[in-house]
Design a protein around this nucleic acid. Structure first.
Lengths: 224, 224, 224, 224
DNA sequence: CATGAATGAGTCTTCATTCAT
DNA sequence: AATGAATGAAGACTCATTCAT
């Protein structure tokens, strides 16, 4: 019972009641749905099949979610936030931007290895954004935060003189892309790529590619 | 009605009649289907809609293809081979493995830029491989050839002393992943990443990351 | 839960508790339901929407009414009795059958004008009597009392010599029909008919059509 | 296969092909649907039940009609046009407006008597126009033409001096209303009203109510 | 008295596929 | 070689109703 009938604008704020049991059910459904999608593909993940996986009736899903689309949206949010939270925690533990960058890449792969299901589901969902707008919206939700996180690290690293003078935005896209691209191959066939080796390779590579050859002096503070 | 007549594995050879007009129709349908998928997503690309795009009747598709799945398979093949042919041609023009590697990356991005539709469709299709087997099959068709191509370049480069002593297989996966990962972001939002800049960044980076610091001497004959 | 306790025919008398608050709730629900139906049609008036309009939970309705059907039945009763009471009061104030007839017609239209919602809802509900039996039952509840009322006026008017020798039953049906038919058009489009003008026209017309040309002498005693 | 996928404006003109068999099916479905609605009510007339009545599969209806709504719309059109055509033909046979008016009323009732099913279905459908807009649209389709037809007769009758100086528009609404109102009671219970008697009563009454007391002199041509 | 949660029957609709022409 | 017509399976969704709290 999400947005009820009220078709007025209000929705996000407060979100009505959100009982404890309600939230629990939602999480349970989301989790089961991820499993269902991961094992059979998004197309096969009908409400019926998901409900079956949870062990409830189809209409329970309709009761807790405003429709299949809202469920999928929530799945996306769950998948992204789980991963982001993990990575961010690891990054925050490190001091110095080179270490943070390394942590970002390593944490990304570490999380992957532990949550294969999430990523298999994610790749299946990727294809479901039919319209250009939906794709763009997904980009805004999924990629922009990651890239901005990376960008912040890179930019600060430049200010602190650890990184050389590249375009932070482009490098952020490149780093995130490298991680996702390797992930993608691994999703399609777990045995096709060695996640750990790729992680190591990328870590070294981007460390090399970002480092300031001049040493630890701040880029902006060239007036030593 | 394709495999009704020849249910054995082989496909291209024999193929009963394969009239000229027949092949033309098939290509026409495949091309239109790609456009349809790219513009509205795979889910919206029903036979009806594709037929509409071509300007023919639904049943024509059923007539020429052994079902929707065969059509999509053919689309995948078409998408991959177009791209691979282009890249391979560019790579073959170059002498020396570092140049070939550079060509591989640059050609990949060049082809993307010219055929956005192909990649948008591809990403949509990615999600449609529901089962683990289907995913693995796609990996075999789509990624293995690319990685093997890269691997061959890398390995030969090592033999010729241009490249350092990395694991070719892992680096191949990493390179291909970097290209695809950037592509992915660009598919979701054309304006989110600058394809050319990323290409340049990756080219430099992988050149840097593969080069043999010792110079042009062959890796195997290092202890000379 | 109404008839669970008393599954025999009788309804009003006994009715178990019929707390004051209980009756209030029922009336409140009925009133809100009328509004809901009038504004969105019977089909859209689900228990959920009605409950929403009242500001209570769906199950409250199920608690107070023995199902959706009982609710609608009660709505019908409410709509009819409100109107009938009003008309009857006006008619009773008049002396002489021609005046009573005029009052009947004028009161009908006066009530309409003041309670548009009621009639919009009524027309929507009309269509919901699916079976022949349900329709006949509605006829017995809704039309027979009205026609009998009119019939009584007409017959007495004939006895008193004010009206000519028509068939009271038929004329009653005709008068009631004229009122309802105009109302119907007005329900579909408030601006399409001028209620007051139609009322005036009908009043004059039926006065003309019922009057005894011979004057005030009683019909039965015509040969005096 | 009505409006296909093309969501551009064009639709009504040409209407694609409209094969002979296609039109036959549509008529067959419409006819059966009317029967279904008349016998069980609109709510019970699901696509499944209608398809059952025709003896076809549910999806055949979806194939020939753009959805349930289009089917119902077509039913409305069919019901109205059948009746209107019949009445118009009868009216056109008469010379002189008083005769035409009499013919209009008599034809209305004659058609009713022969096509009870149509009117039972119609009354059921009346309630299905939920929104104000839908109601207004129905008014425009159903009532306006009738009223305009009557209005034309009345106005011409005034010009020719047969009718007195009433407001044509109001009287048209009143006449149509009287017919429909009687019909309504008859729909709810066939035995409750005597159609023929009501028709006779109304015919006389409206003849009386419209006639110019001054005789056959044209109203406008007062300068005798 | 009231409610949140759950249910299952039933609705419309879409789709790939088949078949006679 | 092509098509219009038909089909049945499956989908998402809505709704009145029930039940424990």
């Amino acid at each position: 019972m999400r947005s009820k009938i009220t078709p007025d604008g209000r929705k996000s704020p407060g979100r009505k009641k959100s009982t404890f049991i309600e939230e629990a059910r939602r999480r349970q459904i989301v989790r089961s749905a991820i499993t269902t999608i991961a094992s059979g593909g998004l197309a096969q993940a009908s409400l019926a099949r998901i409900a079956d996986e949870v062990g409830i009736s189809k209409s329970v899903i309709s009761y807790h979610f405003d429709g299949r689309d809202e469920l999928i949206e929530e799945i996306v949010v769950a998948l992204l936030s789980e991963s982001n939270r993990f990575i961010r925690a690891r990054v925050d533990q490190e001091l110095g931007c080179p270490a943070k960058l390394r942590a970002y890449i390593e944490a990304s792969f570490a999380f992957m290895a532990e949550h294969r299901e999430n990523f298999v589901a994610m790749v299946d969902i990727w294809g479901s954004f039919g319209t250009v707008d939906a794709k763009r919206a997904f980009n805004a939700t999924a990629y922009d935060p990651c890239r901005r996180h990376l960008e912040a690290i890179l930019r600060r690293g430049q200010q602190e003189g650890d990184f050389r003078g590249f375009t932070p935005r482009t490098l952020a896209a490149t780093i995130q892309g490298s991680i996702d691209g390797v992930m993608l191959q691994w999703v399609f066939d777990e045995g096709a790529v060695d996640l750990a080796e790729c992680a190591a390779e990328l870590t070294i590579m981007f460390d090399l590619a970002t480092r300031n050859p001049a040493g630890g002096a701040p880029t902006t503070g060239s007036g030593e």
